[in-house]
Design a protein around this nucleic acid. Structure first.
Length: 433
RNA sequence: GUGGAUGUAGCUCAGUUGGUUAGAGCGCUGGAUUGUGGUUCCAGAGGUCGGCGGUUCGAACCCGCUCUUCCACCCCA
């Protein structure tokens, strides 16, 4: 939970709308109690109280009294609260400061496929360094993560300075946000619709005309950059952006890199605080929104009172990455495999006997569990079977007497009575295969 | 926020001129098999048909309201 003040105004107009705001639960307790009682007694909703005239209570209360807001909201991302943290702890932090953070964030959006009200972001940020090496390292992290997960991706790169240069070049620097949002849609809605939207936003015909060659840029990354340089030659910021992108490309060329890297001039990203590089990652084989995004922010800590500290960061969308992996069915085996041995007991006495047994199995590195109820053998076997547990150890009256436990391979159906040590050797050998 | 759908057994879904007792597959439980799963066979349990109201002799089906979930737009992880 954050103060609304730290959250509002950082994500653009749309972002502000998507902030979850917290209802007051303390001060208006008396009124809230009345509302709850009325709702319960009349079997109606709170909305009924507001719109209907059936209930006398509503005559005494305004909607804002029933739903009074606090000054707090749920965090929309991890970057802004992180910037706040950095400012608050600036004296304890050694710069450049690096951190990663995995936590849920919330958006008051209508949920649908690949879009959640609550989801986990995995952030990596470096604050307090202007070096483009940080961008390069972050891109390498992205490449590394997705190759390890076996997800084929395209990393899209752009730079806000280039976008600013373009806005400058067509003579509409104030409209940069509208321009970027419009051209962001190019791939989706086509050139004509983008031009229409630009016109609606108040861009002149001349400006739109000047923008066309930029929108139509295609081909290799180096080709795009060369043409951009010609177009933006008089824009200092634009050239700086181009230069940054070129440098990032040239650094990356020295590293071992597997993903596709693409300079995408239509990549805008709605978050207001980005000032330099911006990234977005798309899965190549699954149609879903971006699974990772990020960029450089020069003045985020400045808003909270620590100017001249630049940062750059990325954020992985964990839930969407699950979605991609689910759809492609590419979870690695060692993640899917759970319990390796199930200990099946016939009664309470056997369960007690198996407690040290399960500990020994575990300390040998075997993942083991005891069936927790004294159910019929058949039921316990079915449990092992449906959970794909490869080994079963049976503990019954005979086993208690002899000390030799029945060990069964669920794949082949073979079973033998062996001392525990032998069983452990057998299973360890099987697991390591 | 705007627009469009959905809701029937634990799950996936059938169910039309509105008509006895609402079905299937899978799953679950029991049995064939007293301490042995995956195959097979037999039997069984499980439903306020999302909720409330209306029309009708009669509603899962028609009408109104409401809740839920999903989809598109917007935007993004």
């Amino acid at each position: 939970m954050e103060n609304l003040g730290t959250l509002l105004g950082k994500y653009g107009e749309e972002g502000d709308k998507l902030l979850f705001k917290i209802l007051d639960s303390g001060q208006k307790a008396g009124i809230r109690k009345n509302v709850i009682r009325t709702v319960a007694e009349n079997d109606c909703s709170r909305l009924d109280l507001i719109k209907g005239e059936k209930y006398p209570l509503m005559m005494m209360m305004t909607p804002s009294e029933m739903f009074s807001l606090t000054e707090k909201g749920l965090r929309y991302d991890l970057t802004v609260p992180f910037a706040r943290y950095v400012v608050q702890h600036q004296n304890e932090i050694t710069f450049p400061f690096k951190r990663y953070q995995i936590q849920p964030v919330w958006r008051a959006d209508r949920p649908q496929k690949g879009r959640y009200r609550e989801f986990f972001q995995c952030d990596v940020d470096v604050v307090g360094s202007n070096s483009l090496l940080n961008e390069v390292e972050l891109i390498n992290i992205i490449d590394n993560v997705f190759s390890k997960l076996n997800i084929s991706v395209t990393i899209k790169l752009n730079n806000r300075k280039i976008l600013a240069g373009i806005a400058d070049y067509i003579g509409a620097p104030d409209l940069i946000t509208d321009i970027t949002i419009a051209i962001d849609k190019l791939e989706k809605v086509g050139l004509e619709n983008v031009n229409n939207e630009l016109k609606e936003k108040g861009l002149s015909a001349v400006a739109i005309e000047k923008l066309q060659p930029v929108l139509l840029l295609s081909g290799s990354n180096t080709g795009k950059l060369a043409r951009l340089k010609e177009v933006l030659f008089h824009s200092e910021t634009g050239l700086k952006g181009i230069n940054e992108v070129e440098q990032i490309f040239s650094y990356l060329a020295k590293t071992d890199f597997k993903s596709t890297l693409e300079l995408d001039l239509t990549l805008a990203r709605g978050l207001n605080y980005y000032t330099g590089a911006i990234f977005e990652v798309k899965a190549n084989d699954v149609q879903i929104g971006s699974i990772c995004g990020g960029g450089r922010y020069d003045n985020l800590t400045g808003i909270f009172g620590l100017p001249d500290v630049s940062g750059v960061g990325i954020s992985f969308g964990a839930d969407r990455i699950y979605d991609v992996m689910n759809q492609l069915d590419i979870y690695p085996n060692e993640v899917i495999t759970g319990t390796q041995v199930l200990i099946i007991c016939f009664g309470e006495e056997e369960q007690i006997y198996s407690l040290p047994v399960v500990q020994k199995l575990r300390s040998a590195g075997i993942s083991a569990e005891v069936y927790p109820d004294t159910a019929k053998l058949k039921k316990q076997m079915t449990y092992a079977n449906s959970k794909n547990i490869p080994w079963v150890v049976l503990v019954g009256e005979d086993e208690l007497k002899s000390g030799n436990l029945t060990c069964k391979d669920m794949g082949t159906g073979e079973q033998r009575k062996l001392p525990l040590d032998e069983i452990i050797k057998l299973i360890v050998k099987d697991i390591k295969r």
